[in-house]
Design a protein around this nucleic acid. Structure first.
Length: 438
DNA sequence: TCTGGGGTCCTAGGACCC
DNA sequence: TCTGGGGTCCTAGGACCC
């Protein structure tokens, strides 16, 4: 039998999606967990991933462990083990790469692959190639995968979640629209809450409604580029290349470290210590990847989920936490508003450059920074031997144990209301990853 | 809903220059 | 001092993703 013509798959894009990935990895590593209802996320007190068996009991992502244990005492609860999940993710990428070099490592449990033009080489149809890779993955890893085949990434994504778990759905270009009728437009990959709302106000409810609009309509309603691309792919085209450069090592755009602490604190020294800790962890990661940062973003988050951000340029690229802290501290004083409860701080390293890319400035700053790098190597070595965070900045030590004295908590409640600076913004937060509906 | 952590990409608008 | 137009670079912020 003849396969689909090239008009069916002008491009042949695969999307692989590990079923209940974290829970599946736990089961793959420990045979005692197989066939049993298990839930990951014990450390945060809420379910992050659930095995099939746990889902069948009616449990959901985001449910509190308390509720889960009350409802189903037989459920096995484990802590997240991201190190192992990453190992399985890398195995997944490696297996798919045996079949094509064009692989995008999209996330810890997903990847895209481009198999366009490989039919003659394998002597198979695209569907058969997809199934061959799928069964290799499942045999090798002990985890099932949802797999989609389509003329674009958006369509391949639709396919991989069409039948779950363990499904395979090929969608030729001319059949794409048959799959769109029952998909709410907000469920499309790349269409979030805000855009779904906008489209709904324009009378667009399903993905099919969107696909059937014409270009004049898109222009008239100022549909932005990312959504024009989705529209184009729903009509059988391909607008998005695979990002095949492996972003693993040096090719990092930014490094972000944020941490929520509990209970929230109004204390300047404590909040700064938290920030300092985040700076250390971010710089540690930068050193591990052999990169430096030329500017950092500082974030303070209040108990009311108001955010205050500042961009702090650094005179010289660095991955030395003490140097970063020195420059951040000046801005911190301006950002920190007394008598407000803070719940989290964050740091993001931007303008990332390679470790060698230091340029000499007029004031000899570079040389001073360089002197520190040998010391930091030694620190990293010790921390590796004796456990993470054995050695840290003195400031950060304040953040290590946080026992908020009752006296201060009461003080903070009694303090009068202080109007927030205008720079503070409310951010809407949605948590699709935890299974909350938009 | 009572809210974690780590990312990327796009766009609008200001600063600066010719 | 006022007037025009156009280009580039940068940053803040929005939106989205897992």
């Amino acid at each position: 039998m003849k396969g689909f013509s090239d008009r069916s798959f002008p491009k042949a894009i695969l999307h692989f999606d590990g079923d209940s990935f974290f829970a599946s990895v736990e089961q793959a590593m420990n045979y005692k967990l197989r066939g049993k209802p298990i839930v990951t996320g014990a450390e945060r007190g809420a379910a992050t991933a659930l095995s099939i068996e746990a889902k069948r009991l009616g449990l959901n992502r985001g449910m509190s462990m308390k509720d889960i244990r009350a409802k189903c005492p037989e459920v096995i609860v484990v802590s997240s083990d991201y190190t192992s999940y990453s190992v399985y993710a890398r195995r997944m990428y490696a297996i798919v790469r045996r079949y094509t070099s064009l692989v995008e490592e999209y996330s810890i449990d997903e990847c895209f692959a481009d198999i366009t033009g490989l039919r003659p080489m394998y002597g198979m149809r695209y569907e058969e190639i997809a199934l061959m890779i799928k069964s290799d993955l499942e045999r090798s890893l002990g985890i099932t995968f949802g797999v989609g085949l389509g003329p674009s990434k958006v369509v391949a994504k639709i396919g991989s979640k069409f039948r779950k778990p363990g499904g395979f759905t090929p969608i030729p270009a001319k059949e794409v629209q048959n799959f769109l009728k029952d998909i709410p437009v907000g469920n499309l990959w790349g269409v979030g809450f805000a855009q779904a709302l906008k489209l709904q106000n324009l009378g667009i409810v399903t993905a099919l409604d969107f696909a059937q609009k014409d270009e004049a309509w898109l222009r008239a309603h100022h549909i932005a580029k990312p959504y024009r691309e989705i529209w184009y792919e729903l009509r059988g085209g391909s607008a998005r290349e695979l990002a095949t450069e492996h972003r693993g090592s040096t090719d990092i755009g930014s490094i972000i470290k944020t941490r929520t602490f509990s209970p929230p604190s109004p204390q300047r020294a404590f909040v700064l210590a938290q920030l300092s800790k985040n700076i250390e962890r971010a710089c540690f990661k930068a050193r591990k990847h052999g990169v430096k940062t030329g500017a950092v973003g500082v974030m303070l988050k209040t108990q009311d989920f108001l955010y205050r951000n500042a961009e702090v340029p650094l005179p010289v690229p660095t991955n030395d936490p003490a140097y970063v802290l020195k420059h951040v501290q000046k801005h911190f004083d301006r950002m920190f508003v007394p008598n407000i409860l803070y719940r989290a701080t964050g740091i993001s390293l931007r303008s990332i450059v390679g470790e060698k890319a230091a340029t000499l400035d007029l004031f000899g700053e570079t040389l001073k920074v360089e002197e520190n790098s040998k010391l930091l190597d030694a620190v990293d070595g010790l921390n590796k031997r004796y456990g993470k965070e054995t050695i840290g900045l003195a400031l950060s030590l304040k953040a290590v144990s946080h026992h908020e004295p009752d006296r201060q908590r009461q003080n903070s409640r009694r303090t009068s209301f202080v109007p927030l600076p205008i720079e503070q913004r409310k951010k809407t937060i949605d948590l699709p990853f935890l299974g909350m509906a938009h």
